[in-house]
């Protein structure tokens, strides 16, 4: 299976004439193809990141020009804003609970339907369907109505959102299934000869062989879980209530930036989010050296 983690293939060194035949043009042609992406990267990614870093040190309401206030936004966020910490807490609980539960469900179901059968394709699609629908306002509305008794109680409201996330386990499941199908049968045959039971087979073959895929799903799901917005907005009428229990970081950032127009404050929050997500991703990559097994035939 190929993943984002693949490296681009090395281009073999060739003699100049050969190279000219193969890449018979000036490199400017490459930049022609790449120009939309370069403009986008500069104007819509790098530029805005730098701009939001600058704005995070200012008071900015979108209508008057930004006013430099130094570290004021950061100090107020960290020391003088209980809602901020409520949103950090709600988001942390959501990520820490929903990601592992979703991945466990995805792996379990992938192993269940990984069996030679004509129905497998249909089942795979059926389990995947919620992943395509789940981000919509429509499904969030359904959740709000089905769980109407829950959305008024702090812990239950968050639980409803966790369930909404777990409900969409089909996306990682499909990737797990593709990974499972790449594990060579001989490995299973070998441990079967040794008399290994199901659990031992799972621990000594499936888990290590699947670890790159688990890692891939873990990283992307974690990053995605931090960005969940729609469900929390719909369930709480955009308030993050009751008592900030569904005030996800993204929702609070939206409120600060686009309801109260405290754009400087919201920019500081955006940078804190970026730093937090980057740190967590880096830690996951670091930890992966200890538990992700690259090698074998898969």
């Amino acid at each position: 299976m190929t993943t984002v983690l693949d490296r681009p293939p090395r281009v073999p060194k060739t003699r100049t004439a050969d190279r000219k035949r193969r890449y018979g043009e000036r490199p400017s042609v490459a930049y022609l193809f790449l120009s939309p992406w370069i403009v986008g990267a500069l104007l819509l990614t790098l530029g805005p990141m730098a701009a939001s870093l600058y704005l995070s040190f200012t008071d900015y309401d979108l209508f008057t020009s930004p006013e430099w206030t130094g570290l004021d936004n950061y100090l107020r966020i960290l020391t003088d804003d209980p809602h901020f910490w409520n949103s950090v807490w709600a988001t942390t609980k959501f990520v820490v609970i929903s990601v592992p539960v979703q991945l466990a469900a995805a792996l379990g179901v992938a192993m269940l339907i990984n069996r030679r059968s004509r129905a497998q394709g249909t089942y795979r699609s059926a389990f995947y369907a919620p992943s395509l629908l789940g981000a919509s306002v429509s499904v969030a509305v359904v959740w709000r109505v089905i769980f109407h008794d829950w959305v008024g109680q702090p812990n239950r409201a968050l639980l409803a959102l966790v369930l909404l996330a777990v409900w969409q386990f089909g996306a990682p499941m499909v990737i797990f299934l593709a990974g499972l199908q790449q594990i060579p049968q001989e490995y299973y045959d070998a441990v079967a000869v040794d008399g290994a039971g199901r659990w031992r087979t799972f621990v000594s073959i499936t888990l290590p062989m699947l670890s790159p895929v688990i890692f891939f799903n873990l990283v992307l799901d974690t990053i995605r879980a931090f960005q969940v917005f729609t469900g929390a907005y719909v369930i709480s009428n955009g308030t993050g209530g009751p008592s900030d229990s569904t005030l996800f970081y993204t929702l609070y950032l939206y409120e600060k930036g686009f309801v109260e127009f405290k754009m400087g404050y919201a920019s500081a929050m955006a940078w804190l989010l970026l730093v937090a997500v980057a740190t967590i991703t880096a830690l996951l990559f670091r930890s992966s050296r200890r538990w992700v097994f690259y090698g074998g035939d898969a």
């Binding site: 990267a41 805005p48 930036g257």
Partner: peptide, 30 residues
């Protein structure tokens, strides 16, 4: 195609897959 900086630009492109939308939301709005 071959061009200078291909590897670092490709790496940057992959990294932006992981960039949270919120990091650029406000300046893009501006």
């Amino acid at each position: 195609l071959r061009f200078r900086m291909r590897a670092p630009l490709f790496g940057f492109m992959l990294a932006t897959i992981m960039l949270p939308t919120h990091a650029v939301l406000i300046p893009q709005y501006t």
